[in-house]
Simulated assay, not measured.
Amino acid sequence: MNAWGLSEGGTRAQGLEALTDRQRAVLRCLARGLADHEIARVLAISQRQVGVVVSEILGALSLRDRMAAVVYAHETGVIRLPLPR
């Protein structure tokens, strides 16, 4: 693992295959900077369920925290934000 808690090498993108559609949707929302209550509203699930899904994502991808999940999402192309000008 590197300093961000991410796996080295090509295994990062392969980890996405282990995620369910709901987990990928939550990961995309996290990467966009949404808070749990916002994710719950966007995905029409409870805030408690968002927390459960985030924990599942962290476990499935062997990440240590939400920030590592955000970095992971950006590095693996789950989400691409425009670069600031």
Rank of each mutant, 00 (worst) to 15 (best):
H37C: 10
L27Q: 03
S46K: 10
H37N: 12
L27I: 01
S55P: 03
L81G: 05
A31H: 07
E17M: 08
A68C: 04
H37R: 12
L61E: 00
S62N: 15
L58Y: 08
L30P: 04
L83K: 06
Q14W: 11
R66M: 08
R41F: 12
E38P: 02
A3E: 09
I45T: 03
G10Q: 12
L63H: 01
L83H: 05
N2Y: 11
G33F: 07
V26A: 00
I57H: 07
A40Y: 03
L43P: 06
A73T: 02
I45R: 01
N2R: 13
A25F: 07
A31L: 02
R12N: 02
L27D: 03
R28Q: 15
H37I: 09
V42L: 15
G33K: 11
R85Y: 06
A73F: 01
V78A: 11
R41T: 06
V26R: 01
R64A: 05
L81K: 14
G51V: 12
A69H: 02
T76R: 11
L16N: 03
E17S: 06
Q23F: 11
E75Q: 14
L43Y: 07
A35D: 13
R24A: 09
R66N: 04
S7C: 09
D21F: 15
G33C: 08
W4Q: 08
L6E: 02
H74D: 06
H74F: 10
G10P: 06
R28L: 02
G51E: 07
S46V: 07
V54E: 06
S55Q: 13
L83F: 11
G51A: 06
L16Y: 06
R22L: 14
A31T: 11
A3Y: 07
R32T: 07
E17Y: 05
Q14Y: 07
H74K: 10
N2K: 10
S62D: 13
V54S: 01
A44T: 10
G77Q: 08
R24M: 09
C29F: 06
M1Y: 06
R85Q: 07
A44V: 14
Q49L: 15
Q14L: 15
Q14N: 06
V53C: 00
A25N: 13
H74C: 05
R12L: 15
L81T: 08
V52T: 09
L43R: 02
A25Q: 15
R32M: 14
A3F: 10
V42S: 10
S62F: 11
V50E: 01
L27M: 03
I39R: 01
L19I: 03
R24N: 04
M67T: 13
D65V: 04
V53D: 00
I57C: 10
A31F: 02
I39V: 14
A60R: 10
